[in-house]
Design a binder for these strands. Structure first.
Lengths: 214, 214, 214, 214
DNA sequence: AATGAATGAGGTTTCATTCAT
DNA sequence: CATGAATGAAACCTCATTCAT
């Protein structure tokens, strides 16, 4: 990112605070203070608060671009293996980039988004959808996935489950008596559990068994 | 609620705007304007903006209290039937009370919540967890549910999927070319789809087949 | 006072709060709440907050009217005796009507006062000045008081000392380790001390000795 | 103060308005308007209205710190001379810093004060009390002051008289037909009169004559 | 005669941004 | 290029008062 240390610092702090308090709930003063830069720096570097979050989206979605693309192209893996790898990738990405994905969640809840963000989010989702579509069709063609699969609902479950897990992680810790774990340890634990859970969930859903149509 | 039309009107508008724009992103002016009341009415009736959202939580969680309790107690239904009914109930509740549950999602993302809200949300979740625990144990005792079920992950998937579906409903409409549907029609469609999807998902998960432990 | 219990109650509470927090620092809501009446009662009974304090002055200055007049007319007492009695009277009045005189102090500090209050205060002071003037002239005529007495400065000292004592009574209690005393006990103590102090102060000042003119 | 002209300007105007109208009776708008600065400057420089008056106390009490300390240490003056010099100093200070001492009076009348102010006022009074105590003990040791002197009552009279004179100066002018005098002239006159009056008052009180104990 | 609901003006403070340096 | 001072708009809230009952 621009190899300007102050700019990166601002982006990093903004990401954290936007995640914790939301966009409107975070003031540029808060960001400036926590990033240990002058308030005017934000307007100076990014133009405005609005453009700061745009830049954040620009920066963060660019990072993870095409992370999954190679997976689909891989010809050595079985369809179900690919699904599982993809689950791992999504869990990994969402949990590791917790802050950014909290912002994504907030943004998706919001009716009016900025041009930049809408476009980024939409592009991001369409691309993922396309990739998975290929993956699923491949499995269906191979006869291992059932035909009536609603891809978007599956993705809804995938993303929804991980997002919900991230949003309610404090509750999860309390319920499971994991308050002693440090952040890293817990994150690893959560990723493992989510991964396993989602793989089990999907295995039976994508295959031909146990299905009832309405 | 209090059989005071202005108060209810404020609460309703607040619910909608908080859902759409978030708490900090909604000004009391916005609420007052849209509810067609004087700005000072909000302080007059609720004390402050903070207490308004507290009152909103108070009012909305009270409404749905014990909605699910009778289900668990019912002795004529089979465990899996109960699960399915519960899925329907959750889908119904979250989709119909879309605004309120969007606020819930936002609140859960936020690090600092008000005393009242924290308590309500926590109580709400613990109660639901307890109810589902009973339901699951009943199924396990009857031998139809597998033993290693992680209840909290199942709820995470249930709520997460519905929440995600609500948050990304516009995307869903676009993907499935459902933009022609009016709001009511679409809601019915979404509920049906979610219900079916989740039932299928859970059916194979709660029963004894297809499972791999990590 | 009008034999209306609510009106009196309001006046009493207003007196206390105006004394403690000042006029602008006291809201009609505070008064209404503490007096346990509806807010609108104050406007209803008195017309406005401004007129409430006017009514307070009306009511309280009327009470103490002509309290001192008989003293001056008394022909059986020696001039110095009269001075001493007057000192006692002032101390008694100011200490016992602490709240009202705190308001008086505040009002005197304020540049813009209401018509009613200005008139009341001015009349009050002029009347007292006149009475004391007679008293002093009598003493001078009898040859026991010195001629150059500055009456207004003497009154300034008399009222100033008592007012200052009232205003700084907490400090006085701390300094003299009298924090154990209850309010009534302390008030009696303070009156006795002030009376003695002022009598001693005045005795030598009004008589012919020890004086230096500038 | 801080060599910032706008900040000083705000402090000066605030001092005047708080003196005239009280703290609650003065709005930050009033101050900003009269000081010819933007309203938000007050929060910007001082944080809040409350902190503005705190800063005022900080600034003004710092100014007059240890003004009297050297007097007590002086070994060439007789005790009574010292008393007289101290009287002059108090009269000078209170009359010249009229506005600030009006605020002090108001603050002392008020039950709830800010931490900063309480501390400043208390420290200020304790320090003065200590200094005068030394002065009096010295006089008692030298045999020229009587033993039963109540120091706090003497200070009450000293400060009370000057304060009362300041508070009622308009009345004084009317009584003495001094309305023609300009402000400076009158101030000089008042200081002279007060000084003379208080010296005479104290001379006979601190020495051994004319005293009656209760 | 008495009240509680309602109001608009104005209070203090925070906000994102700009400007002069 | 970078900054800290400064700003006006708008935020939330409290105020004294009024009005319909």
């Amino acid at each position: 990112m621009d190899n300007n240390p102050k700019k990166s610092q601002i982006l990093e702090v903004a990401e954290k605070l936007f995640a914790e308090r939301g966009f409107a709930g975070t003031s540029v003063r808060d960001i400036a203070h926590e990033a240990d830069v002058n308030v005017s720096m934000i307007s100076y570097y990014f133009g405005s608060k609005e453009k700061l979050i745009d830049a954040l989206f620009e920066s963060r979605t660019d990072e993870s671009r095409s992370q999954l693309e190679s997976l689909v192209m891989n010809e050595e893996l079985a369809p179900l293996q690919k699904i599982n790898i993809m689950i791992d990738a999504v869990v990994e990405r969402l949990v590791e980039k917790e802050c950014f994905h909290k912002i994504m969640m907030r943004v998706q809840l919001t009716s009016e988004r900025s041009e930049v963000i809408s476009e980024k989010v939409m592009g991001f989702k369409l691309r993922n959808m396309e990739l998975m579509k290929k993956l699923v069709e491949e499995g269906q063609h191979a006869g291992v996935f059932r035909s009536g699969l609603d891809l978007s609902l599956m993705m809804t479950t995938l993303y929804g489950t991980v997002n919900q897990a991230i949003a309610t992680q404090d509750f999860y810790r309390i319920i499971h008596n994991l308050e002693h774990m440090d952040h890293l340890e817990f994150r690893a634990h959560l990723k493992r559990k989510l991964s396993q859970h989602l793989k089990n969930l999907f295995k039976s859903t994508v295959t031909n068994e146990h299905h009832v149509e309405n």
